[in-house]
Design a protein around this nucleic acid. Sequence first.
DNA 1: CCTAGAATGTAGGCGTTGACTATTTAATAG
DNA 2: CTATTAAATAGTCAACGCCTACATTCTAGG
Lengths: 195, 195
Amino acid sequence: MRRPFHHGNLREVLLEQAEVMLRAEGVDGLSLRELARQAGVSHGAPRSHFIDRQALLDALAERGFDRLTERVVAALRDPGLDRERLRLVGRAYVAFAVENAALMELMFASKSNGPAGPVQEAAGRLFTVLDGGLADSAGDDTRERFKLLFAATVQGTATLIAAQRVTPEQGETLIDDAMEALLTSALGSQVLPGH
Amino acid sequence: MRRPFHHGNLREVLLEQAEVMLRAEGVDGLSLRELARQAGVSHGAPRSHFIDRQALLDALAERGFDRLTERVVAALRDPGLDRERLRLVGRAYVAFAVENAALMELMFASKSNGPAGPVQEAAGRLFTVLDGGLADSAGDDTRERFKLLFAATVQGTATLIAAQRVTPEQGETLIDDAMEALLTSALGSQVLPGH
DNA sequence: CCTAGAATGTAGGCGTTGACTATTTAATAG
DNA sequence: CTATTAAATAGTCAACGCCTACATTCTAGG
């Protein structure tokens, strides 16, 4: 049984290996040729699935957004009060960011393909989920601003932890403080009633 | 007058050219050899000043923190009320981040040299300034938590703008909302009295 | 079934890069 | 003036991304 000429699902294998390598070596350590080596194919093979290195990175970022969205959705399913759910979502977001620091860098790198494209769409889906899950009252403007404020806070917390300005333990306190501040603010009291 | 063998201040020239290139091409477009070319020296010359590419990037990050610190200090000098100063600092921070998106990526990249080192020290100076400037009352714990919360919020806002999830105009509103939420929170009322 | 064409993978080459080393040149201290 | 050190040169090397020509496999339409 010789190795089939066609790999079969090279694209998936490459993406998974790339995530492993990304975690181990960071973005810089992610080489197409090494990836091909690990998959047991020739160095040109990845080109059939990713036109260039950036295309691979974009695909990784897209998957990252999808996985983060899943985590957020799971947190939103919690049966607790709105107040508690908000905290859970915040923690889930930050936890994902801590576990996938290099991936998050990719996801929020400004050069992920232009204003449109799959990456931005995946990011959009994340924000849509956050939007729908966090606020079912209040006007659109208030809701939009609350959503952005939430996103900024959790994203900033994640960045501070990744940059080692904050330990993961401090991060827990930080995210709790942040959610508290969010709820106590005027925007919070309009969007999430009952605190 | 032949060109002197010794450049004289090659290190400074390289750093300044690197910032230009960083702004124009992003981190990936920053090549040591191209830098040497632009400075009119041989391709090995930069090695006398930066042992490898990462050392150059670290130096850039360090300077970035210093410049950001300057901007924050300037904002802190505003004679207005604490409430207004907080907003100014937040806006200054975000404005710097927007104007120097690629540099900010460098500054907060997790692989900027380990737990110690010049980059972390420069980052520490920034946080020290924020700490001293934003709160002269309240206990150390509360102050520390308020400081982190502030940093996370502005940093997250900056990231969202850089990732084009938020337009610069939305960013203005966002930072105002954020500062308001910060002040309204329990931490805020302990740290910054009088609102 | 079988054949044309599209996908997929191979093989090799090209130019660029970061890193390393030996060597030359300039600046400086004694 | 000379010995030492710092700074820059020039050349080499392996690795990489990208490109092209070609081989193999898969897939539909007739």
